[in-house]
C-alpha cells in the first residue's frame, strides 16, 4: 500500500522543553489512522510539523512522498486541516471566510461549501464573532473539507460539538474516506478513535508507545466496572481472566477489566445485580494499565 504520511525519527524540542522524541510511524493510503495520547503528549506538535507550522529539531516527515517542510505549499493543496482550537477573523462573515479559504485552491468550491454547511446546519451569513464554540468548529470542518482533500488531518476535532453533530461529523468523515481520502485523527478520547479508526498510534510524553489495530486494542480495552449485588456471599470474579484491582466493600464491588467484554458479561449474569456501572477509564489510567501489562510481560 502507498504510504501517505511517513514520519521517521522525528524529534522536536522547544528550547529545552520536550515536544516529541524519536517518533516514527506511517499512515497508509485510504485508512483512518488514530493518533491518541493524553494532553501534552505531543500529538499537536507532530501534526504541526506535518503541516510545516513548526520545524523539527531532527528527523523527517513526508506527505505524498514529499518533504513536509521543503514542499509544504504543494502538499497543502491536497491536505485539509482542522486545528484543535479554532480561531478565525472575528469580523468576517462565515461565507466570506470560507470563500477566502477556497480562493487558495484554484477551483470552484462553492457547491461543496454549500453542501457541507447545509449538512452541518451552519448559517453562512453570521459573523464569526457571534458563533458558539461548536459553530466555530463547524466552520473549521467546512474550511478543512471544502476542497475535497486527499488527506484530512484532524486535531481534537469533536471538542465543542454536541453528540448529534459529532455523529454527523463522523458520517461525513466516513464518506470522505469512502471517496478515497486518508484521515489522520488525533484525539485524547479513546472511544471516538475506536469508533472510526482502523489503526491507532498511541503517544505518551512525546514518545510513541505503540501502534495497534483497533481490533487488537479493543481486546486490550480497559474498563472500570462497579456493581452492587444482593446476598451475603461476595461474587468470585478473581478467576476471570483480565480482572484486576478487585475490591469488595459491603455489597459494592469494584474492579478493572481488560479482555473480552463478552466473558465479563457472562460472568456478571451469574450474579444477582442491583446496579451496574461500566465506564471507560481516563486515558492516563489506560496507559498506566497498559504499561504495567507491558512490564509484566517483560
Amino acid at each position: 500500500m502507498d504510504k501517505i504520511i511517513e514520519v521517521k525519527h522525528l524529534s522536536k524540542y522547544y528550547g529545552k522543553s520536550r515536544g516529541v522524541i524519536d517518533l516514527s510511524f506511517s499512515v497508509e493510503k485510504g485508512e483512518i489512522f488514530g493518533f491518541i495520547g493524553p494532553n501534552g503528549a505531543g500529538k499537536s506538535t507532530t501534526i504541526r510539523t506535518l503541516l510545516a507550522l513548526i520545524r523539527p529539531t531532527s528527523g523527517t516527515a513526508t506527505i505524498f512522498g514529499k518533504d513536509c517542510i521543503e514542499q509544504a505549499p504543494n502538499i497543502a493543496e491536497k491536505v485539509g486541516y482542522l486545528p484543535g482550537e479554532v480561531y478565525y477573523y472575528d469580523k468576517m462573515r462565515v461565507r466570506d471566510l470560507l470563500h477566502y479559504s477556497a480562493s487558495f485552491y484554484g477551483k470552484n468550491c462553492v457547491p461543496n461549501i454549500d453542501r457541507l454547511c447545509k449538512r452541518l446546519d451552519l448559517d453562512q451569513d453570521k459573523r464569526i464573532e457571534t458563533l458558539s464554540l461548536g459553530n466555530k468548529k463547524k466552520v473549521g470542518i467546512v474550511q478543512g473539507l471544502l476542497h475535497e482533500p486527499e488527506l484530512i488531518i484532524l486535531d481534537e476535532p469533536t471538542t465543542g460539538l454536541d453528540p448529534l453533530m459529532q455523529q454527523t461529523f463522523f458520517d461525513i468523515l466516513k464518506e470522505e474516506n469512502e471517496k478515497g481520502a486518508t484521515v489522520l485523527f488525533s484525539s485524547h478520547i479513546l472511544s471516538e478513535v475506536q469508533k472510526i479508526c482502523s489503526r491507532v498510534a498511541i503517544i505518551r510524553e512525546g514518545r510513541l508507545v505503540s501502534i495497534e489495530d483497533i481490533s487488537a486494542l479493543k481486546q486490550k480495552q480497559v474498563l472500570g466496572v462497579s456493581f452492587e449485588y444482593e446476598g451475603d456471599e461476595a461474587p468470585d470474579l478473581v478467576e476471570l481472566k483480565g480482572v484486576s484491582e478487585l475490591t469488595v466493600d459491603h455489597n459494592l464491588c469494584r474492579l478493572v477489566f481488560q479482555g473480552d467484554v463478552n466473558e465479563l458479561v457472562e460472568s456478571l449474569t451469574k450474579i444477582n445485580l442491583v446496579s451496574l456501572h461500566i465506564e471507560e477509564p481516563s486515558l492516563e489510567s489506560i496507559f498506566m494499565h497498559y504499561y504495567s501489562t507491558q512490564k509484566d510481560h517483560v
Binding site: 503541516l51 507550522l53 505549499p73 486541516y81 486545528p83 480561531y87 479559504s101 487558495f104 485552491y105 474550511q143
Partner: peptide, 8 residues
Amino acid sequence: EFIFTKPA
C-alpha cells in the same frame, strides 16, 4: 494555523 496551512 488557518492561514499558514493553505497552499501558499
